[in-house]
Simulated scan of single mutants.
Amino acid sequence: MKLLKFSPLLLALIASANAAVYRSDFNTLTSTPSVEIAGQDGWSSTSSTTFLSHTVAWNNGTGTTTAIAIGGTLDLSDQTTVGLNHSYGEELGRTTTKFDFSFTDSTFVVGDPDPDANYVALRDTFAYSVYSGAANIFSVVFTPLEVDPTVNPTAEWSMSYYVNGALGGSFFLEVEELGTYSLDLAFSKHGYQTAVDLVLNDGTNLFARNQTVDLDPVLTITSFGFDWTSTEAGGGDNEMLIDNLSVVPEPSSALLAGLAGLAFVSSRRRRA
């Protein structure tokens, strides 16, 4: 029996396709607010403040599962953005992200028992971002329509996108507190620009949005993660819950061509 010999190029392509893959349902993490995500499973934090991210037990409508949560502490010294990041290593134009998410609402209002009786926990902004080096090159941003729960007790967040830190536009979609959503975000090459395809699933309907942004699709995503921007010093008590996260590269045309070539060579050897 003859052994197949793989070309160095094909082996490199196969290795590359598997090098930048992250998938997790977080069920292997302990479901308790005392467990920090930063420092586990390749995650790191952009802040030294504790309990900015932790595991939670989340009833997503089909049962209770373990999710991660970012936000929800009341100990930030000023209005700021903190992130929970994970390293990656793939071209922007070949990367697809999927995750389930929900928002808890700010419920702390004037009159609640707290050392500061006049404090109102305002709603905060959250985002999913991808980075190339230190540069935040693309973000899906969730911004509260009304930050003060005493003005409007029903919370909704609008969805927009930022390119290189600047507002690129709106996806014209809104999500509500306590709802369960799934988000698919796919980047692909569009000439020298990047095509962005976003699909939001609320369990009943699918909402698709397509954009083209001025980003070189061959830029390398070095990390991805979730950001929390507090509305004021202290931040709100709302959180973004995330589960079933996958960040993976789509098969490149080069890899597919290599696999097709491997099949052709294998077929010729069998005939021989």
Rank of each mutant, 00 (worst) to 15 (best):
A38G: 13
D41Y: 02
I70G: 11
H86E: 11
T81P: 03
P33E: 02
T62M: 07
Q40E: 14
G61L: 12
G61Y: 10
S87D: 14
L52F: 11
S48R: 11
S87C: 02
F51K: 15
G72F: 03
T62V: 07
P33N: 01
E91V: 01
L84D: 02
V56T: 14
I70V: 14
S77Y: 01
G83W: 02
S47F: 09
N85D: 03
S47C: 04
N59F: 05
L76M: 09
N59R: 06
S44R: 15
A57I: 07
L76Q: 12
T64N: 14
A38I: 06
G93A: 05
E91C: 00
I68G: 00
L92W: 02
G93V: 03
L74I: 08
S77F: 01
T65G: 00
L52P: 01
T66G: 01
G39F: 07
G42H: 12
N59L: 07
S45H: 08
T55W: 03
S44H: 05
N60K: 02
S45V: 07
W58R: 05
G71V: 07
I37D: 12
L52D: 08
A69D: 04
G72A: 08
N85K: 04
A67M: 06
N60H: 09
I68Q: 03
L52E: 13
I70A: 09
W58K: 04
D75F: 05
H54L: 12
V82T: 11
N60E: 12
W43Q: 08
T73G: 06
W43G: 09
E36P: 01
T50L: 15
T73Y: 01
Y88F: 15
T62F: 04
E90D: 12
T46N: 06
W43Y: 12
D75V: 13
E36W: 10
G71E: 05
E90T: 12
S34C: 00
G72N: 04
G93H: 02
G39P: 02
G42T: 10
T65L: 09
T55R: 04
G89R: 00
L52G: 11
N60D: 15
D41A: 14
L52T: 15
S45K: 09
N85C: 01
A67F: 03
A38F: 12
V56H: 09
I37V: 15
A67P: 07
L52C: 05
Q40V: 09
E91F: 00
T50E: 08
S53T: 12
G71I: 01
E36L: 13
S53I: 07
W58N: 04
E91G: 06
D75S: 14
T73H: 07
L84S: 03
G89H: 01
A69S: 15
F51P: 00
V56K: 11
P33I: 04
W43D: 11
W43R: 09
T55I: 05
Q40H: 14
S47K: 12
E36N: 11
G72R: 05
Q40Y: 01
S77N: 09
G71C: 05
G89K: 00
G89E: 03
T80Y: 05
